[in-house]
Write a protein that binds this DNA or RNA. Structure first.
Lengths: 172, 172
DNA sequence: CCAACTGCTTGCAAATCGCAAGCGGTTTTG
DNA sequence: CAAAACCGCTTGCGATTTGCAAGCAGTTGG
């Protein structure tokens, strides 16, 4: 996308790789939604990325070393995308961005519950989550506790509470 | 730039505001370089933003509440841009991005010294820095210690060391 | 055999980008 | 006090990127 390196500033270099509307969305879905196939990333996204954009971003993320790709043994056409250590290391960035977003932007409660947990858990929880991602995406041993399950369960609870509240008569 | 909100996810909403190549560059220069005028942001940037892009980004950042603008009393044409609390609160995001960039991308040593200090200082240092930014950009009282001076001094030392090394004969 | 699905590409109009020049006005300089 | 420099910001324009829809060859499951 961009070929001319402008400066050696770490923030600038980070933005040259991730500074667009979709790259971090793709990584978010891989990281927090455990979406590993093209179609999963394409269809199950709340934001609706276009297929050509997704293909382009996956290519760029591959080239930049944030993700890797291998063939799915059970399906000759499927490819499985995995986070690399470089991609997994973005957890603190996501945590900081999500915490900022939930404090200053009109987020929905059920979408911000995971950001809240990550903010409260702090770096200790982030490290646990990163260990789990190394198990899911690399060949690291399984950790004793699943942060992803915890986050997903909290999200589902929030969605259920929302639906329950919506089906109740107003004002109760 | 973008008008359709896609989802209430905090990461998505953050990217709708800041997910482009230049918005965070502008905020970085205001925050770490204390650049407050249009021309300062235009000319003294290592990356060379175009003037129309800068004007557009300043407008968007104003609309989204990340910065404010007031007239410069000493110069009828100048406007002074300041970070709001919303903008100052991006310090942890910058720290996380800068730390990630310096670990995985080909940064130059003198440009990454500040990222290193911020990473080592952790949240305690970030809070000190944010207090200083509230003094510089809002009407908060002056803090006892200047993190910005510390960062700037370290950066200048690194630049001087670099120039000294370059003027030496090779291999010494 | 066939419908559904796989990752991914193509075509195209619209939006955005980077670059250069310029604008009316203000401040500094000689 | 006039010329030069500077101020924030806009305009024009060609090149790139985006969003959207459709489609492709190959694979799988019923």
């Amino acid at each position: 996308m961009r070929e001319t390196g402008r400066s050696g500033c770490p923030i600038n270099l980070t933005l040259e790789i991730l500074g667009d509307r979709w790259s971090l969305i793709v990584l978010r879905d891989m990281m927090f939604g455990n979406r590993r196939h093209f179609r999963e990333l394409l269809a199950k996204s709340d934001e609706g990325i276009a297929s050509n954009i997704l293909a382009d971003r996956l290519k760029r993320l591959l080239e930049n070393g944030l993700i890797s790709r291998r063939d799915d043994a059970s399906h000759k056409q499927k490819g499985i995308y995995s986070l690399t250590e470089m991609g997994i290391s973005l957890v603190p960035v996501f945590a900081a961005m999500a915490d900022w977003g939930r404090r200053f932007l009109p987020v929905t409660p059920e979408m911000s519950i995971r950001a809240e947990i990550l903010a409260e858990g702090g770096p200790v929880l982030w490290q646990k989550f990163m260990s789990e991602l190394r198990f899911l995406h690399l060949d690291a041993p399984r950790p004793v506790h699943s942060v992803l399950d915890e986050l997903t369960a909290a999200y589902r609870d929030a969605v259920e509470r929302k639906h329950a509240a919506e089906s109740e008569p107003a004002g109760v």
